[in-house]
Amino acid sequence: MSTVIPSSPEPKASLKARILGTPSAGPFLVLLAFGLIFALTNPRFLATHNLSIILQQTVIIGVLAIGQTLVILTAGIDLAVGAICVLGTIIAGKMVNLGYDPVLSMGFAILVCTAAGLSAGGLISALRLPPFIVTLGILGILTAALRLISAGGAFAVRDPFLAWTGNTLKLGGFVLTYGVLIMVALYAIVWYLLNETKWGRHVYAIGNSPEAARLVGIPVRRHLLSVYLAAGLIYGIGAWLALGRIPNADPNAMQTANLDSITAVVIGGTSLFGGRGGLIGTLIGALIVGVLRNGLTLAGIDPLWQDLVTGILVIIAVALDQMSRRRN
């Protein structure tokens, strides 16, 4: 009936098997391949100046994708990512322009973003509404509200603290922004939470099987609430990073942030069905998108091709995920 697996009690996996078994190996190879192609076709691609630009361009989507990863790991999806982030920039910008203390303004803006994440989580966990619908609703509400608040138009935000994340520093000849450092720190912290703590374990468990999670005593609804809260907090920090890149609060900005963040997560190998994948993959996924944009721009290729290639990558990533699930 079942085949016997001939094995010693505890076989050591070979290096090759271990690499192939790592979920982020595939995305990493894709990143490497694109990097190689661009490096070979254009000497400017590998210049430290250019690599630094790629990182800076990846910062916002890279950070938003952290929150998106958490949500997708629980088998949810967040369509309000961009709207919540823009909400943060508008609140912080408005307050500073009204003369409030910039630290207080940014802190308050991050708090409001966290509250927005929390209310999404509350609707999803308490009323058991599908995440897709709840976040789509929040997207609509916020988009309209933001245009009302800012009377439709974008406005400049001139404040050294709000723009601080865009300041550069030199690290061994490599020019980085504080925003890049914040992104790396956020990845490290959330990676730790996901992989080394009970909280992260339970995120995976809920994404795998909410029923099993409930049966083993995990407070599923409370845990979901904490995931959306953490995501909202991360989007709020993303708002600060966005102001550092472009000192502008624009209610019409970041309209592609939802799809871009989902793209990074999916290309990074995290399953849309929840419970599989991880943050390293997402970072690589965000970098793939960044490298692709940069490389194609350097080569003088029409930007439409970027979206086309990204689209193909998303479909391939989802197809691979489906296939591996079916095999199991």
Binding site: R201, S209, E211, A212, A213, G275
Partner: peptide
């Protein structure tokens, strides 16, 4: 339980200690 109450993508040790890490 009949459906075993397991998280399929997690490893054996994680499942043994699920909820009681």
């Amino acid at each position: 339980y009949q459906d075993l109450a397991m998280a399929p993508a997690l490893d054996i040790a994680s499942n043994l200690f699920l909820g009681r890490e």
